[in-house]
Structure formats: structure tokens, C-alpha cells
């Protein structure tokens, strides 16, 4: 009974833990966004993005709290949270997706990968293809991810009053800069 049982369990373990399954995580991803309008440029930054990446199947999950964005003017920060993204109702922006190509952990040259998935902000989720440049560091112990993409306010039901069109851009430029560390079991 016993040898047979251990055989089954070993088989199950072996089956559920593929040899090359590797997870990376970060809790300090830097997310910036930039709005360029005739009257003023507005920039905000958060360094509290959290994310997990499975390098085996390219699955990624990314999350940043809207409240963690810092603005140069604190009244702007209040208006951003209160009037635009309504962060009490919709506290976080998220992205969940999968890479369309394999991440090569042995290569140290930057790789261009597109993550296909759902990007959600202000409670509205949109399918997006996000281009990401991945650089493998420290022999695969760390991954650097860089990405730039645009977010249109109206895609996510973020309403800008007509009288403020000169102050706030309709399309916001977002850039992400994150260093993922390998999760050691």
C-alpha cells in the first residue's frame, strides 16, 4: 500500500510543479502618468505598484492603488481622487494578462513582449495589448519591465468638464518602470 501511495503522491507533485515554473514579484513598481494640455502639464507618480509575473506561461497581474499617486499640487491630487477616478468607489487600477511570446530567461538583451489582457481603471475594464520591454538581470534572478502606453479618459468613463479641456488631456500617457525579483520557495 505505502510504496504505491507515495508513487501516486510523487506523481501528483511532479505534475503540478513544472520544473521551469518561476514567479517574479514587485511591490515598488513605479507608475507615472502625464497629461499635456494647452494650459498646463500635469504629472503624477506612484511607487507602490504591486505585480506578479509567471515567467513560464507569461501570466502577469498588476495593481496600483489610485490613492498612491502623488501630484505636484495637492489640490490636484484631491481633485484627481474625488472628481475624476473616484478612488473611494474604485480604489485600484489593474492589469491582468498574458505574454504573447515566451520570455527567454537566458538572454540578457532586452526583449520586446506584448502582454494581452484586461486593463481596468475607474471600474471600467478594457481589453488591451500592452507592449513591454523586459530585461533579464542577475542570471534570471530579477526582471526589469518598462512600458509606455496611452489611456483615453473616455474609454474608462472618466469625465472631464468642457470648461477644463484646456487643463486636462483627453489621452493620458502612462509609463511603467518595475524591477521584479524572483520568488524563492
Amino acid at each position: 500500500m505505502r510504496p504505491f501511495y507515495f508513487l501516486i503522491m510523487t506523481f501528483l507533485y511532479w505534475n503540478t510543479t513544472p520544473v521551469n515554473a518561476q514567479f517574479y514579484q514587485t511591490t515598488s513598481a513605479e507608475i507615472r502618468f502625464f497629461s499635456s494640455a494647452p494650459v498646463e502639464d500635469i504629472e503624477a507618480v506612484s511607487k507602490e505598484g504591486i505585480a506578479v509575473l509567471n515567467s513560464d506561461n507569461g501570466e502577469i497581474s498588476f495593481k496600483v492603488m489610485m490613492r498612491s499617486f502623488k501630484f505636484e499640487k495637492s489640490l490636484m491630487q484631491e481633485h484627481f481622487n474625488e472628481n475624476y477616478v473616484e478612488s473611494e468607489k474604485y480604489p485600484a487600477a489593474t492589469f491582468k494578462g498574458e505574454a504573447n511570446s515566451k520570455i527567454d530567461l537566458d538572454s540578457s538583451t532586452p526583449q520586446e513582449v506584448v502582454f494581452k489582457g484586461d486593463f481596468s481603471v475607474h471600474g471600467v475594464s478594457r481589453p488591451r495589448d500592452i507592449p513591454v520591454r523586459i530585461t533579464v538581470k542577475n542570471n534570471g534572478k530579477a526582471l526589469k519591465l518598462e512600458s509606455q502606453f496611452d489611456v483615453a479618459c473616455k474609454d474608462h468613463d472618466i469625465k472631464i468638464p468642457k470648461i477644463l479641456w484646456e487643463n486636462i488631456a483627453e489621452v493620458i500617457e502612462v509609463s511603467v518602470n518595475a524591477e521584479f525579483q524572483i520568488i524563492t520557495k
Binding site: 510543479t17 504591486i50 506578479v52 497581474s61 492603488m65 498612491s68 491630487q77 474625488e82
Partner: peptide, 22 residues
Amino acid sequence: QAQDVDSLMANLSEEKDYRVQA
């Protein structure tokens, strides 16, 4: 459980206590 991206995320998402604005 530990194999899943989502569950690893759940472990990370300890929410910070932000000041209530406005």
C-alpha cells in the same frame, strides 16, 4: 495554491491605510 499568479497577488495586496480626502 502557491502556483497561481492571483494567489501570489492576494498575498501582496496588504492595503495601505490612506487618509480620507475632502
